[in-house]
Design a binder for these strands. Structure first.
Lengths: 188, 188
DNA sequence: GTCTATACACCGATAGAC
DNA sequence: GTCTATCGGTGTATAGAC
């Protein structure tokens, strides 16, 4: 087994990520990954015991990077806006679709996805808790619910924008901006 | 080419749907479909020119049924609750994940998905418009935005429930129920 | 309409040399 | 670490008989 974190290890995950993004997981094969990196097929199985293991490693690497991004956003002066921007733009929605489909088939991936959702939700809920405390008018939704709502909206908007659907998107963005202006005023 | 709507045509789509739901689209092959229906592989290509065509036909059949369900719900006494129930329970979220992943690869499927989203949004927005008119307190969101928000929440809740994540779900359901009580009181 | 048979390509994974 | 070579299996799609 090749060393986790080595140059080849990263290069193979880079190649796999590009294939997944551009062609979907039906094209994510050991031969294609090897071809992209410029090595022979056999080497893929030296660094990753099976293709399922490769997929799990790929997701874990992406999730770790995303959690770092979320934590950095949470530490910024206007964390809610920062989180909203990340949710809207960071992760390619095609990749999400591929991983979701794969998670139903690969048990180890499913566990990683669940853990990532829970960790992200905790970070976001904590931020919302702080933000809502600083606002006088009591909301009728708790911070956890609001966190879920905002996440779900970001996912839907990203997905539909990638498809080419924009119906009602401008209206949503305006409503979200108005909400952020209330909770996190820009002139504070 | 075999006749659209014939018994075999439906049987093959039934088999394909079950495979997609249970094992994902990597297992959706002409051989597996034929095996499930109890015919030879060659016949699948008689009814559907290619496997991509089969997938498109499968989605279109599901979408047509779903639109019928949505329209029926919109005509009920409490249409908003009916739509919410449908969104939460009707379509398997694993199927959605598979179709979303496939839509990025199959251009014809992508077009069908886009059309389905737009038609559904129109139906739901129309219902919300009527429901909000009957409520005195003006909302800060328009009917289209609310429609998108409710749809996105239903999709996220279904997806996470299927994965096994329930963090904040009860809170969301309670908030939604409270909203529905306001807009569509049960004792009216 | 439904079948047998088949062409041809690609897949995951491994044995074993260097 | 990286390679060559290969096994056994599955896939899409078509030709052509009945």
């Amino acid at each position: 087994m090749g060393p986790e974190g080595s140059d080849n290890w990263h290069a193979m995950l880079d190649g796999a990520e590009a294939i997944l993004r551009e062609e979907g997981h039906a094209a994510l094969t050991s031969r294609r990954v090897a071809e992209r990196v410029g090595v022979k097929q056999r080497l893929v199985y030296y660094y990753f015991r099976t293709m399922d293991d490769l997929v799990i490693s790929l997701f874990r690497r992406m999730a770790e990077r995303e959690v770092i991004r979320l934590k950095a956003a949470a530490a910024q002066p206007r964390p809610l806006r920062a989180l909203w921007d990340i949710s809207l733009h960071s992760t390619d929605s095609r990749l999400i679709a591929e991983f979701m489909a794969l998670a139903h088939r690969i048990e180890g991936l499913k566990r990683e996805v669940i853990q990532f959702i829970e960790v992200s939700r905790e970070i976001e809920t904590e931020v919302l808790k702080g933000a809502l405390e600083r606002v006088p008018q009591g909301r009728n939704m708790g911070p956890a619910s609001l966190s879920v709502t905002i996440t779900s909206l970001a996912l839907l908007l990203s997905r539909e924008r990638q498809l080419g659907v924009t119906m009602a998107h401008a209206e949503i963005m305006a409503a979200l901006d108005a909400f952020l202006d209330q909770v996190e005023p820009l002139d504070s």
